[in-house]
Nucleic acid binder design. Structure first.
Lengths: 181, 181, 181, 181
DNA sequence: GCCTAATCGAGACGGTACGTCATGTCTTTAG
DNA sequence: CTAAAGACATGACGTACCGTCTCGATTAGGC
């Protein structure tokens, strides 16, 4: 039943968009009573968050460092950009959007997903930086670099709504790897 | 009448949030008939966009270059971060959020606001870069740099929901100004 | 212009019914501004009443007595029944209907149309009765007979919504002509 | 819930008239959601018809024959005339009026109320006629007499909007009882 | 192995907002 | 100066979902 609901929510979001993804619609599609949904989830955001957590971990996972730091970073960013085309990426995009409109969503999204994701991003980025520099960077320094790394791609996709190109990836990677002055 | 509606929408958004900003609420607050609103605007997004266009131009305007390029960039980014605290910035944040949920909103926001804003950003950034380098950068190069410039701040604010700190500003400015390799 | 409005109202009523006959619709159909209608008429009832008065007089007119009183009465009632099929009859039916729902309509319909029509009915009925009885009936007696004469037909048509048959006409005529006991 | 709605509709009709009796008004007065009304009734006509059916049966019931046929008929007609002063009678009057303006109302009113009422009228009239004549009248003959019986009173009340007087009642009774020639 | 409690589907309920239509008043534009 | 065009505040329309609330009907699991 839980899976029927999560899949119905996922499908509806991809097919019809966030607004048309109503609790009634999810219930009907999942062949489930509305009350059953309310018993287990607080809102449709809660459902989508559950769906996201199940699906997004691997889509945004870091590969082990395999080449030059620049190549590793650009290929990770390429993967991030691709993720937003996948169903799970669309769920994340919708939740990020709705988080701008609703504080509860913002809090839930950050506590239940973004915080852990950021930890994974810090770890992945650290692994790459360690191969690049002699002294391993301190965690709080890396933390500050995550926005520098992910910001340009997310700005291009979410704000500008335009495709990510290789120039942007390379410039971003260089920016992250530049020596602190 | 037009102004009463735009102000009512603005006020409601700041006080109650995007979802609670309904057409009926705007109409009641503006002392205007619902039909009158539907005569001139297609949706509340349309209203907020009008309000934004009137208000946001100066909030995101570039100052003339006045110091080192790094200082100019960090102080512009500081202004951008501050803008999201202002009413007009909250309108932009809400519209950016809703644009992730609704294609029509995305199209309207980009065509009616973001495109022109990006042109202003390209111009402002160019003016600074020209003082920095000998040969003035080509416009299409600068265009690519805008995401690099604005992405980290927007990611920090909109995605992470965390305050912008000086380290981020400085790192971002350095990234934009680093020599193309 | 007056005629354009009256005809538009008439046509709309026959084609679309009373409820769908709106002031806006009449104005559009007559190629006239709403305000112009409001300048000359108080309501759509007022318009229809004007249309009715122009058209109904002859449709409900009494023919000169030509045969036996019974034949004269049945043929008049046959004409009355037929009148409700005509456009003007449908206007009258609508106004009679609306008069049950709205006191102003009831007053206007009676003062501007029914009172005179009843006078014509009294006169027509008197002319027939005079040929039947020796002493001419007193007007107030005849007045009482008008409901007896017209009631059965109007009940059959307006209340029962069923066609009038010859039996009803003959029985009604006999009832009116029966000697006062 | 059902009763709250029917009573609210009844009350509003009597206090404010048919036009001012809106679905929203009924809902508000009954302390019920609009959607609940639409779930169970198609329109306000449907509601009033339900109210009428519950209330009107006794108001238009025939008493057992108790005196001379003439007296029985006049007293029944007197009761009918009085009925139109009662709340249920006003509902019937409004529905009869609206039936002239709207075919659906006409059909519903006849199928759901008038048909059965006419059957009761035929039965009641037959019972009286049987005491008057030796051979009991055939049902289809009586059916034709019902319009003759009720038409004058309804014409006086609904068309002329004038009070019913004893002369009319007596003349009507005589007309119904006159021997078929 | 039965019973009691939790869970399920179904869907009615009081609400809020939607977007539309017609009302009657008013202002503007053009002949 | 009149009439067309149509904007305006008002209020009802019928619809869609919301989140809460009964309803039986299963369906377990603990006695």
């Amino acid at each position: 039943m839980r899976l029927a609901v999560l899949n119905a929510a996922d499908d509806l979001l991809v097919e019809q968009g966030f607004t048309a993804t109503t609790i009634e619609g999810i219930a009907a599609r999942a062949g489930v009573a509305k009350q059953t949904i309310y018993r287990w989830w607080k809102s449709k955001v809660d459902i989508l968050l559950d769906a996201l957590i199940d699906d997004a971990r691997e889509g945004l996972a870091w590969a082990d460092p395999a080449g030059t730091p620049t190549d590793d970073l650009t290929s990770h960013l390429r993967r991030v950009a691709a993720f937003f085309q996948e169903p799970a990426g669309q769920v994340l995009q919708a939740l990020l959007g709705h988080a701008q409109l609703d504080k509860d969503t913002a809090v839930a999204l950050r506590e239940r997903f973004l915080r852990e994701q950021r930890a994974r991003d810090v770890a992945g980025l650290s692994a790459i930086l360690e191969r690049h520099t002699d002294r391993p960077p301190r965690p709080e320094t890396v933390d500050g670099l995550v926005d520098l790394l992910l910001g340009p791609v997310s700005h291009r996709i979410l704000v500008q709504g335009a495709p990510v190109d290789e120039d942007l990836l390379r410039a971003t990677a260089r920016a992250v790897l530049q020596p602190a002055t």
